[in-house]
Nucleic acid binder design. Sequence first.
RNA 1: GACCCGUUAGCUCAGUCGGUAGAGCAACUCCCUUUUAAGGAGUGGGCCCUAGGUUCGAAUCCUAGACGGGUCACCA
Length: 546
Amino acid sequence: MIFDNQYIQERISKAERLREEGINPYPANITKGMPSSEFFKHFAYVKELDADEKKDEAQTVTLTGRIKFIRIMGKAAFAKIEDSDGLVQIYYNRDDLPEGYYNNIAKKLFEVGDIVEATGYPFVTQTGELTLHCKDLKIVSKAIMPLPEKFHGLTDQEIRYRQRYLDMIMNPEVKETFVMRSKIVSLIRRFFEDHGFLEVETPMMHPIPGGANAKPFITHHNALGVDRYLRIAPELYLKRLTVGGMEAVFEINRNFRNEGMDQTHNPEFTSIEFYWAYHNYHDLMKLTEDLFDYIFTELQLPKTLTYGDMEIDFTTPFAKVPFVEALTTIGGVPAEVAADREKGIAYLKENGVEVNDNLTLGYVQAELFDEFVEGKLINPTFITDYPIDISPLSRRSDENPEIAERFELFMAGKEIANGFNELNDPLDQFERFKAQADAKEATGDEEAMHMDLDFVRALGHGMTPTAGEGIGIDRLVMMLTNNHSIRDVILFPAMKPEAALEEKPKNACKKCGNTNEEELKPAKKGKGYFCIDAAACAKRAKENKK
RNA sequence: GACCCGUUAGCUCAGUCGGUAGAGCAACUCCCUUUUAAGGAGUGGGCCCUAGGUUCGAAUCCUAGACGGGUCACCA
């Protein structure tokens, strides 16, 4: 059991002693005291008083928070309590608390980790720290788990991710990151609302996985008797809404992809997708720049942010480079190689990249891009005009049928956004889905898209010219908060089950499954246990069969 | 999926050549009424990740596995 530990038992017994004293260690109806930030603001004048003892005994103020430090000096003690704003020091002693309360309760039973309510007046200590002199100190919630050590804190990555609550208690910057994340999401939402977009919610469980190239999670609906796929992207549903007449929509929510995990991939991640009728991908790029300007202004961020050892300049407009041009100018791939399937494959192999010989030119170019360009795109850069065969949902360029009217936005060597003019020709869409299905056959591409006939039918009713874009929220938050693992911007990242929390299987008789330890003996040879009473065992085994 | 690194007290970490476990903080018992990682004296606390193996003897060496981190692959 998780409570089988001397420290925890010690703390549980303290909670019991509180009860014996008639004090509920988990009282109801406690209200939050003055926020610590307000305490410092409101009583700043005490520091300026012209007196030997700087204090204002006429004031009565209540603070609530978790005890982070305690320093007991005989008949008096200092503690620091923390609320969501920060740390405040409190002071309590034998003579200013009710008779006997200091020696029996406050000193003995309150400890680091407990949440308390302190009431008293502000004063300034000899070392100049504004502090609350307690007339009353109550338990608000007794912590029975000990906190990590105060100086080094909690550094074990595994515990930090598994027990995020503990991480947040011990590492204030973690809380800051997630406050920042919340603000960013809120600003994005407000930005799109202010631009006339409608927020919608589309299914998380899809009959056909679509809208991206990815392996889905599969689940089962019992009543319908059908398998469902957790959505890999909301795209096809949002476009159905465009057909239906919603001309500007967005959705901020989770996507699920059954793929590898690393510093930029979590199986569930958050994106915003938005669709804008009667606009094109150039409008999207401008809108994206406006969005970044808006976020940076509202958060009062400098235009140049440090990301690891990189300096990223977010000044708009962002650079724009066509895809094939980027291969040569940024990636250093010879022009004739970038334009030729066979030469591209050979070039990749020369550079130690394993490639499937069946790849089409577009896929070869994509490999070249991933290998030689992506990592070099530090400042925000729009890569435009993608090969059509790797863009199955994008509209074909009228000037060059090999090119999709599409862009992706990169920064710090990572993809952040993907947008394009939506393909709205139903017959073309049908053929592209078919081509994807063929690619699945030819190269075994498990991520290739599935045929979605209802979506083709929807397009058959006519979709206005529309541009759509998706932005990875987690990666964006990483950039803006200088975090380098997606796990650091997801509150509860995906983890394997924790062995320590699983019930240990009891020793059981190999014949009848009896788990009563007193009736078991170890097997003479090999592992396992058998019943001491063989007759009773045989009887039980028989009953089990029934 | 491959490789590298890690896993020792509640936390942060030592642990030599293979000889049977250590520190600081935390806890417990004392002293201490303005401390700042408070200080002082004392005490208790261990499935050394798990399972095998080598050995007279394993935290330490070997093999397999679990979990985590990293690199690569996959994944845009």
